[in-house]
Structure formats: C-alpha cells, structure tokens
Design a protein around this nucleic acid. Structure first.
Lengths: 335, 335
DNA sequence: TTGTATGCGTTATCAG
DNA sequence: CTGATAACGCATACAA
C-alpha cells in the first residue's frame, strides 16, 4: 500500500514519468523499457492509486447506482446488468441505497457527489422533487430506470419498460383465451407504471370490443397484501374469469388469498402478473406474466451512461424496452 | 464540479486552510467564521473532493464487497446489511462481482486494490487459492462471509453461520415429530457447509439413538436440479418419512419433483430446507427451514471491518452466528 | 525517447 | 485563531 510510482521508477532506473507512460502503454515508450518497468512494478507489487489518478484525470471511473433496496430481486437484476457492463469498461459500481428513507437517499446522493462519480444511475422508483435538484448538482450524466415521476430534462435520461404495451399484451392474451370479463388489480396511485398498465389494459379491451367497466378495477399497493383486493373482484357481477395484476408480487398475494378460499387457478380464474420475478416460476401454479428484461435494462442504462460520459452533449434518445409475455400455467382458456 | 476549496476561501475572505478546518468542524475555528465559511460553501454549491481528501488522509472510505452474483437473494440480503451499516458510518460500498468467472474476480480484486479500499468483505462462496494471495496484497482488513475454504490467517477474518448446529437443529426437529427414517440431500462435495450440515445431521441422529445409514444420503448440487436426487431416496427401504435438504433451493427442486410424482408434502413426506430464502415462504407448502440471518451477517461483517479499520492489530474473534428454525407447513408429525 | 516541473484539491505542519 | 507551505501519487506539458 505504500509503494508508489517513484519506488518503481527507482527500481527500474528511470524517472517516474517514464513509469507512468510505460504503465499506461504510451506509444512513446519502446518495448524494452516498458518491459523493464513492468518487471520492476510487478516485483514491488505496485498498483497505481486510483484516487491520485482520478484527481488529475478528473474522472473517478466510478458509477453511482442509487436503489431503494438491493434486496429487491428486481433491483438486484438491474444492478447485475449495470455492474457487468461497467466492469467490462473499467468502471466500478458504488452503491447508494435509500430504503425509502429520504434522509438516507439524500446522504447517498451527497456522497456520490463527493466521490465525483462519472455518472449516476437511479433505479429508485421515485425521484422526489426534493432530491432531483441535488442529483443534477452532481454534474454527471444521470440515467433513470423505470422512474415513476414523469419529469425529464436535458441532463436526465431514462430507460423504461413499455408499460402501456405490456398491459395491452397481457390483456390481449387473456382475451385471446376467450375471457370477456377481465378484472384488474392496479398499482399504487401516483405511479406512472400503474397508470400506463391500466391504459394498456383498456386499449386491449377496446380493441376487442369489450366495454370498459371501472368497477372491475381495484387498487392494490404493489405488494403481496394488495393481492387481497382480489376478493372484492369476486363479488363483482358477473364474476370475472381472469384478472390482470399490476405485478407478480400482487398476483402471488392474490393467489394465496384464492387458495385460502378454495378457488382454483387457472380452473376457476386465470391470473396474469407483471415483471417476471424469479419466484414467478416457482409458485403454484407458475405465473403467466410480462417479463421485464431487468438485466437488459441495466445494461442499456450503463450503455447510455458510457455514451454520455464520452460526450456529455451527445444526443441520446430515451430507451423504451418491450416486455415479453411469458405464458405459464396460471392462465387457460375460459372454461 | 469545478468549485474547489480555494473558491470557497476567496468567497469567504479566508485562507483555504481555514475553510478546511471550518468544514471539518475543527475546534480551533470559532463559531462565527465557521458560519461564514459554511454560508460561502453553500452558496457556491461546494462539495469536497473525496479523491483529494483520500489521497492525503490515506483512506478512501470505501468498502470493497466481492460477491458471486448480486442477483442471488441470499447475497443481496448480505449486501444490504453491509451497505446499511457502512452508510451509517460514512463508508460507501464498491461492488465487485465474479459470476464464478476467475478472471472477473481477479479483475475485481485488482480494481479494489487500486481504489485503496479501506476494507474488503467477500461473500463469494469460495476464495480460491489463486485469489487469496491477491486479496492479502490489498493490505486492508478482509472479512469472509460463509467462506467454504477452511483457510484463515492473521489478516483474514470471518463471519459464518453455524452449519453443524443448523443441521443438528433441523434434524432434531424432524426427530421430535416422530420421524425415524430421515434422508438427506447433501450439498456439493468440497463445500465446508455440506460437510458441516451432514455432521449436524449425524449428531442429531446419534443423540436420538437412530443408527446412521449412509444410503440415506444423496448428493445434490445446491441448486434446484439437485432436488431431483430425492427420487433415489424414495427407492430406499424403508422409505424415509422425512428429508433434510442442504438448502431451500434444493428443497424447492425436490418439492417440484414430488408434486410431479403425486407425492404430497407433508402428508407423505416432510421436508426441511436451509437458508430461509425469501421464496421459502411462498412455495406450496411453505417450507420449514433453518434461517440464516443474512442481513445480520452482513452487519456483523461490517462491524468487524470497522473495528479492524480503527486498529489493524485489534484482536477480533471470528463470528459464528446461529441459524433459527422456522417451522412451516412442509413438515408434520409422522403419520 | 526520456526527464523536469507543475498541478489536481485536499489535509497537516508549522509559524505567526 | 489563522495563514503559508508542504505533502499525498499521479499524468502531462514542456525541455532536453
């Protein structure tokens, strides 16, 4: 930890600038001296100091990644995508988690700023008003993933799944199975995703000539508990034969509730989720869902960041990724 | 990003050293000037440069965290524990993932070294021989979580769950339910956890006066596919009435296989897992398991790191944490 | 092709 | 209490 470029220089019998050039593969340095320098560096166990380097190059080669919780499998998969591509390009991921605690989140942003991260990727679902200005102050390109606040700007870019189309595809699929009375458990109010998925749901109904009935929609909370709202839909007349849920967690919660009531899925009721979380495959029955390509989204976000880091004025269009229908056993033709 | 301490100094009408002192709350600086400096700093939107600071303080306030995959829910929960406590103490987590690719892992370690991370926590399951020396070269305290290679040293510390006791408790529980023929699907050969859980299994059998029968043990792979080994155990004579699985994933794989064969859990067979991954609660039936306190382990590891960062010669004992039996519906009294 | 000198933005060491 | 000034370890403009 204490061997510096000067020690290598001394050992190799050259000046420290020569060492610097040799180790960064400058074309100025001939093969022979480069070799000698490298040998000396290796022998001393030299590793350049990224902080010193960053101070002068004015880049940290760090990507700040802000998430609500790394323990959310959805988020984890995004981070995996980011991390992989970042690593391949010589960048490191610095984590900042918020756990929906504004204070924590603000602290994270401040720290990333002190670190002089070269870019920030936010997979936190909501970039609060309080916090967005702070973010901009970092002075590095910002990429938001599936952000639920509509606001964008010149410095803020985004990657998101096409929620409207996703909701449409899910509903279309149910229609194609012969269902005509299709309920929906929506996500939290104020989330763009909630609104957009409903929009897709309506669009599909409309295309199928099925009148829209707002009493077929109940409001969940995006968590398993919200799935209990399905009980209200069962009181609807006529009883729906299929339900499109805001997300997989909601669907899984609904599934549990149905099981308790002795209602069989998909025999009595078809169920569709959204996200394709890893668990969706393992519940009983395995859940039909719209897969969000989370790994891919992480990668695309980092790709965007790379472009912007190379040229901060680069014109990059916001990315909208299509989800994919994964048909599994929680749905079947209307009996 | 371009406003430095000198700009603040100029704006506040003091020297840059005064600014530094004021902002680090040095007792030398009187309230009044500190206020003035802080106002100037705020007005200019000044944020100290962590790289410059780290260069001179000789600490980065970064914790390197090496994991196989952040997308593993088990790992993610550990990282959450690390991150939380780290953040509370002014440290940031820098991620290094390997995905079992040695090259990636070595690269990660090298990068953490260049970053001069103040400590390294490794939640990768195996610290290969190739890679351990590299790790030591980082020259910062190292804490291994659930490491499967036994090697330790003066610089390498560890936090681990008590696998022997865990295996024992799981098996004891089955015994207490009246089971006498208890099978086991073990984990991968060469993993300390596999060996230790078996040891616990044997110890419990022994205490119950049940003779150990090695043909009641099959070797899985720690993944869902390994759960299929349960079919071999069903051929055993007498047929086991309970199976203790190496981990939850294995148990879930086994469950799937049993369902396919029309064997009912827990009516025909009781099943116990290990880990208590989030999914264990949602499979059908919910899985009885030994919970590893992953969040807690992450926190303990960071705690250890903090102690060692304060005093590198501190004597810290390796931590062994007890798992907890979570009794759910996959087990019942022998019928 | 190489070496010298400078500066990146801080904190720490001295004087005052 | 405050201000010069020196480091920290590196990359680079400029000289040789």
């Amino acid at each position: 930890m204490r061997v510096s470029i000067k020690d290598v220089a001394r050992a190799a019998g050259v000046s420290h600038s020569t060492v610097s050039r040799a180790l960064t593969h400058s074309p100025l340095i001939p093969e022979t001296t480069r070799r000698r320098v490298e040998r000396a560096a290796k022998k001393l166990g030299y590793a350049p100091n990224a902080m010193a380097r960053g101070l002068i190059t004015r880049q940290s080669r760090a990507i700040g990644v802000i998430v609500t919780s790394i323990a959310d499998p959805f988020v984890a998969e995004i981070v995996r995508g980011i991390e992989q591509l970042a690593g391949d390009n010589g960048y490191r991921v610095v984590l900042g988690t918020s756990h929906n605690d504004p204070e924590r989140e603000v602290n994270a942003v401040k720290a990333l700023r002190e670190w002089r991260v070269d870019s920030v990727i936010v997979a936190s679902s909501r970039v609060g008003a309080l916090y967005q200005p702070l973010l901009k102050d970092i002075g590095a390109p910002i990429v938001l993933i599936n952000n639920q606040n509509q606001q964008k700007g010149r410095v803020i870019h985004s990657v998101a799944v096409d929620d409207v189309r996703g909701g449409e595809v899910a509903t279309q699929y149910l229609v194609s199975l012969g269902h005509r009375v299709i309920g929906h458990i929506r996500g939290p109010v104020g989330y763009a995703a909630s609104k957009n998925r409903i929009a897709g749901y309506r669009r599909a109904l409309n295309a199928a000539g099925i009148p829209y009935d707002r009493t077929l929609i109940q409001t969940g909370d995006g968590r398993a508990e919200g799935g209990a709202q399905i009980l209200k839909l069962l009181d609807h007349d006529p009883i729906p034969t299929a339900i499109f849920c805001y997300n997989d967690i909601t669907a899984i919660g609904a599934l549990r509730e149905l099981k308790r009531r002795g209602i069989r899925v998909p025999r009595d009721l078809s169920l569709v989720g959204f996200d394709n979380i890893p668990f969706a495959l393992y519940v009983d029955p395995p859940l039909t869902t719209i897969a969000q390509p989370m790994f891919e989204m992480g990668k695309r976000a980092l790709q965007m960041a790379l472009t912007l880091m190379r040229d901060s004025r680069a014109q990059v269009a916001d990315v909208v990724i299509q989800g994919e229908l994964i048909a599994r056993a929680s749905t079947r033709v209307r009996g």
